[in-house]
Simulated assay, not measured.
Amino acid sequence: MPRSPTIFNEPRMRAMMEREGLDLVIVRGVENSKYVSEFFHNGGNLGYRPFCAFYFRDPAKKPAFVVPAVDLHLAMTQTWIEDVRAYAMAEFFTDLEVHFYDDFFGAASAILQERGVKGMRVGTEGENLTSGFRQKLDTLLEGNELRDISFEMELVRMVKTPEEIRRLKRATEITVKAHESFRAAIKPGNSDEDLHKAASIRILQEGATAVNFINIAAGAANSFAAHAPFPRGYVMQRGDFVKVDMGAQVLGYSADFVRSYFVGGASERQQEIWKRLNEVQVELGLWLRPGVTGGEIFERGYSHISRYLNNFPREFVGHGIGLGSHEQPRMNRVNRTVLEPDTVVCIEYSYYHDGVRHHTEDTFLVTDKGVEHWTANCPRDLIVAA
């Protein structure tokens, strides 16, 4: 039974295509192909196994989706696109008695011929495609004008649909709860493996569909690290610095926020740094509004923190979040992307002092009625009692 998309913002895609004069958009990148098709495939990161969506501005030309044969049946049950085709990959036949093309380009060629793709303006992901795939696709599209729309697709995805917001908010709520278990496990004698286990178990108990990432810094060996992906068996002691950057995932959408701690006590200077990072971060997040640019957000946030901390190291102070962990608007000095309603953003600040990297990150939903602070209830206490 045909259905309408709930993640893919079709009106926003059409508006972009109208604005850019595009007749067809072809997306093969992992995030974009999931976004347009709404099929959350595994394997699209394999260069030899493309998942690719074809979307036409003319509603008379129906969209199409090409997948490896091994994923055909599941794709047909999950995508809103009715025309799903498969090429022989991983399996030569499945439980479906349908024609499989010899390779991806055989399926793509048939779609282009049937839709009369000639003399069109076609948007692709350009430099973001692997060189071999791009060369073959360019050859297949000879006779059409090609345009790299990688950035335009970022802008399409920036504004979230209600279903995307629901998934992101739920992932964030679960991660806040996992922080409770993480903090409770911070004590002398416990290891960073204990911390990782406590957070992972809580994430799954609260109903997440996956643990997307848990980066823990603990002890002098990696207290400076921005992203320490694996626990190393370090046993915590009084006075240690502990930081966690974590995100639960709900149906393909992940949270992303950070808290930092000291076990038993911290110097006055460490406490002052933490206080300033958090007050500036929250002020900036609640100041957000539609119409400001990523660059304007950066300038406000940078000038504010620079009143208190010298040589602030960050090149950006925040980013959008969605299917990707870092999406538009990226809040650096040169970004002119305009913030729009229904954008979910993370504001983050960090600062190095005395061998540790203080880091705090919070999540906000920007609407036309104001800002929702999704991580407001996650405590900011720097010191955990030993």
Results as ranks from 00 to 15, higher is better:
Val156Ala: 03
Pro162Met: 09
Leu140Thr: 07
Lys169Thr: 13
Thr139Gly: 10
Leu146Glu: 05
Ser131Asn: 08
Met158Lys: 13
Leu129Tyr: 10
Glu154Ile: 06
Thr130Lys: 12
Ser150Asn: 06
Arg147Pro: 02
Gly132Thr: 08
Arg166Asn: 08
Leu146Ile: 12
Leu129Lys: 01
Thr161Glu: 09
Glu142Lys: 13
Gly132Cys: 09
Arg166Asp: 12
Leu129Ala: 07
Thr161Pro: 09
Arg170Ile: 10
Arg134Asp: 05
Leu129Arg: 00
Lys160Thr: 04
Glu152His: 13
Thr161Trp: 08
Asp138Pro: 02
Asn128Trp: 01
Ala171Glu: 09
Glu152Ile: 06
Thr139Leu: 11
Arg167Ala: 11
Leu141Asn: 01
Gly143Asp: 03
Glu145Trp: 06
Glu164Lys: 02
Lys136Trp: 02
Lys160Gly: 04
Phe151Thr: 04
Gln135Leu: 15
Glu154Arg: 10
Leu140Gln: 10
Glu142Pro: 02
Glu142Trp: 03
Ile165Gly: 14
Asp148Met: 02
Met153Asp: 00
Gly143Glu: 03
Thr139His: 08
Asp148Gln: 10
Arg157Pro: 01
Asn144Ser: 04
Met158Ser: 11
Met158Cys: 12
Leu168Ser: 05
Met153Lys: 05
Pro162Tyr: 07
Arg170Lys: 14
Leu141Glu: 00
Phe133Met: 06
Glu163Ile: 05
Asn144Gln: 03
Leu137His: 00
Ile149His: 10
Leu146Ser: 06
Glu142Ala: 14
Gly143Lys: 06
Asp148Glu: 11
Lys169Phe: 08
Asn144His: 03
Asn128Ala: 11
Ile165Met: 15
Arg157Trp: 05
Phe133Pro: 02
Met158Val: 07
Leu168Cys: 06
Leu168Gln: 09
Met153Thr: 04
Gln135Glu: 15
Arg147Ala: 15
Glu145Tyr: 07
Arg167Gln: 14
Glu164Ala: 09
Ser131Ala: 14
Lys160Glu: 03
Thr130Arg: 13
